[in-house]
Amino acid sequence: MKIVLHKAHTRGHADHGWLKSFHTFSFGSYFNAERIQFGALRVLNDDYVAGGQGFGMHPHHDMEIISIPLEGELVHQDSMGNRGTIRPNEIQVMSAGTGVHHSEFNGSADHAVRFLQIWILPNEQQVTPRYDQIVLEPEDRKNKFQQVVSPDPDDDGTWIHQQAWFHLADMEGGVSVDYELKDSTNGIYVFVLEGSVSVAGEILERRDAIGITDVTTANFQAKTATSLLLIEVPMEK
């Protein structure tokens, strides 16, 4: 087993007033040669957007973009004609493929929105752009892993162009849960949303993260009530 530990305070940080963003991997003005990506996981941004603010139309291509709202409302609009609002317990996926423009704005004038934006390098280039948005059932991740993203359109959750799987879990303190990798050549990247959990001999607290490779299963022991995101990805860059 090999691990890479990313404590919350070691992340890159950008404060633009209306936008406060923590970057797990190199992004924008934050560059760390040791933190470019974890396999196919290229970006994991932890964003805060003030009321009435947001990102205007901007382009993407050949990237799988996953947005997970944690608090508030995020309004999406894109050049494919999609417009919608995502809230906690929902997830949004956009395959940028041959090229797409989109905007993201706080759906409230008064309250901040907090969300994760994650970029996965695709296993196919120049695909037809697509958009999807699904609702998640919180009970389906109580003391277990809830699959929210996979490579298979017919599997649970939504899907992307990569042999990657995303799972969420809400664990009560004292609970132990195992995760079995879908592909033993993959790695897993675990990001703690809230709480405290023991994994791979490390104690992770709020917004800490760990990358684990050369394993087929991983055990998680919640020290307190804990919510976490687990991303299984191919390690070939």
Rank of each mutant, 00 (worst) to 15 (best):
E90C: 04
I68S: 03
G99T: 03
I91L: 14
I66A: 13
F31T: 12
H60W: 06
T24H: 15
F27I: 15
F55M: 06
L44C: 12
F31A: 04
V93P: 01
G84K: 02
R35D: 15
M80I: 02
E34I: 14
F105K: 01
M57G: 06
Y48K: 13
A40Q: 15
F38K: 06
G81F: 13
D78P: 12
M80G: 11
R87G: 02
I91P: 00
R42Q: 10
E90T: 08
H58A: 13
V75E: 04
S67V: 07
N32S: 08
H101S: 14
M63A: 12
H76E: 07
P88T: 04
S26A: 15
G97T: 10
M63Y: 12
M94Y: 12
Y30G: 05
H102G: 01
G51L: 02
V100N: 02
D78K: 03
L41I: 07
P88L: 04
E64H: 05
S103R: 02
F38Y: 15
G52L: 05
F25A: 11
Q77F: 00
T85G: 08
D47K: 00
H61Y: 10
N89V: 06
F105P: 00
Y30A: 03
A40Y: 08
L70H: 09
V93L: 08
V49K: 00
S29R: 07
G39F: 10
G51Y: 03
V75N: 09
Q53T: 05
R83L: 05
Q37E: 14
F25Q: 11
G99M: 12
Q53H: 15
R87N: 12
T98G: 03
G97C: 09
G84W: 00
I86E: 00
D78A: 13
A33T: 15
A40R: 06
D47R: 00
F105A: 00
R83T: 11
G28Y: 03
E73K: 04
I91A: 01
G72E: 03
F55W: 15
E34T: 10
E73A: 04
L74M: 12
Q77S: 09
H102P: 01
G81R: 09
G39I: 07
S103L: 00
N82V: 07
S26Y: 14
T98H: 04
E90F: 02
N45G: 09
E104S: 03
N82A: 06
F105Q: 05
D78Y: 07
F55H: 11
T85H: 01
G52Y: 13
I86G: 00
D78T: 11
N32W: 11
A50S: 13
S103G: 10
A50Q: 12
Y30K: 11
D46G: 01
D47N: 13
E71K: 14
